[in-house]
């Protein structure tokens, strides 16, 4: 009897504890947050996380700017972090509440877009390149000409992800320009190359992981993590790093100015900077995470994966996208509209 009472009391205590811990609303990219990570977080802290998806930085920015969204945390890419700060949509972090902040790997600490990581903490990083089915095309895949000067074997079989900034900048680098350029000669060349190549593309869509796995597409402009997931399902898929230059991205977690569950948000941010938990993030979406010491917890199949560990000869071509100026953005949007018509 006494035993039952104790159990009841314990039960009551834990449930009320769980309720007191509350909820957290995470606004993140689609197919990017592993359910096992959230389950572990909830088990450890009692905080229930609700995830809402978005498919582009602009969507996230537009929705948050409009207000009334109810989100606490957002995960924008490198070049959008300064915009969130400048617009006052995300706040400076109280580092005393983030003891794990020191776990951020040194190379990801003093980054150009957020010196000292006072406003954003790493979620995952990766790069955009090409996923190619090597059973269909046996040539060199480390070049943007795969989608800008499509080889015969891939004509009508290659997809291009509809990610304006990445695609236009790949084309700009292909014709020898700098990312976010305002040089109209370069932009004109990039536009012409894109327009000439488009008839050979099958589609401009997301979902590369599935469609490369089931042979709907033989190639795609794609992110490295998605490439790896496609390879695990279809071992003829390989990832190419364009030698003409390719953008590197890092998606970082930011605390929104109008967050209602601030304490829970800090608990979550601190939680994901624990190496073991950061490795769980990577294990799901197959990208690196930027937390020192997480390597030890990474799944075996990622430790030597060519998509995750960039081969040395391809490292130099990678570049971080700066935050493009509004003028550069307008050029890109005009090219994009012409491309998508």
């Amino acid at each position: 009897m006494k035993c039952t009472l104790t159990a009841l009391a314990f039960l009551a205590a834990t449930t009320s504890l769980a309720q007191a811990e509350g909820v957290l609303n995470l606004y993140n990219w689609g197919n990017y947050t592993g359910p096992d990570l959230l389950a572990k977080f909830e088990a450890e802290t009692g905080i229930k996380v609700t995830v809402t998806d978005y498919d582009s930085n602009d969507t996230a920015l537009a929705k948050i700017e409009a207000g009334g969204h109810g989100f606490d945390l957002v995960v924008p890419s490198t070049n959008y972090v300064p915009i969130f700060v400048e617009k006052g949509l995300a706040v400076e972090l109280d580092l005393t509440k983030l003891p794990n902040h020191t776990n951020i790997a040194p190379e990801w600490m003093d980054v150009a877009w957020d010196q000292g990581r006072t406003h954003s903490i790493p979620w995952q990083w990766g790069s955009i390149g090409l996923s190619v089915n090597t059973a269909v095309y046996t040539g060199d895949i480390n070049t943007s000409s795969i989608f800008l000067d499509v080889p015969d074997e891939l004509k009508g079989k290659i997809n291009v992800v509809p990610e304006m900034t990445d695609v236009v900048n790949l084309a700009v680098m292909y014709v020898g320009g700098e990312p976010c350029t305002e040089d109209t000669e370069v932009l004109k060349k990039a536009r012409d190359v894109l327009l000439a190549a488009k008839p050979h593309w099958i589609s401009m869509d997301y979902g590369a992981t599935e469609k490369l796995s089931n042979n709907d597409w033989a190639a795609s402009v794609n992110w490295n993590g998605s490439s790896m997931r496609a390879r695990l399902a279809n071992d003829t898929v390989a990832h190419g790093y364009p030698k003409e230059g390719y953008p590197i991205f890092m998606d970082s977690v930011m605390l929104l100015a109008d967050a209602r569950n601030v304490d829970q948000a800090y608990t979550f941010m601190n939680f994901i900077m624990e190496p073991e938990n950061a490795a769980m993030i990577s294990a799901f979406a197959r990208y690196n995470n930027g937390i020192a010491g997480s390597d030890a917890f990474m799944p075996e199949d990622m430790k030597a994966a060519p998509e995750v560990v960039t081969p040395d000869e391809h490292k130099a071509a990678g570049t971080f996208l700066p935050t493009c100026s509004p003028t550069a953005q307008q050029y890109m949007a005009a090219i994009w509209t012409e491309l998508m018509k």
């Binding site: 401009m204 869509d205 949007a333």
Partner: peptide, 22 residues
């Protein structure tokens, strides 16, 4: 079904509120 390569008005409007920033 269209694969996003050829837009219709609905998709074109969406583009303006997203990546088009207009």
């Amino acid at each position: 079904l269209g694969g996003g390569k050829n837009m219709m008005i609905g998709n074109f409007i969406e583009l303006q509120f997203g990546q088009g920033r207009n």
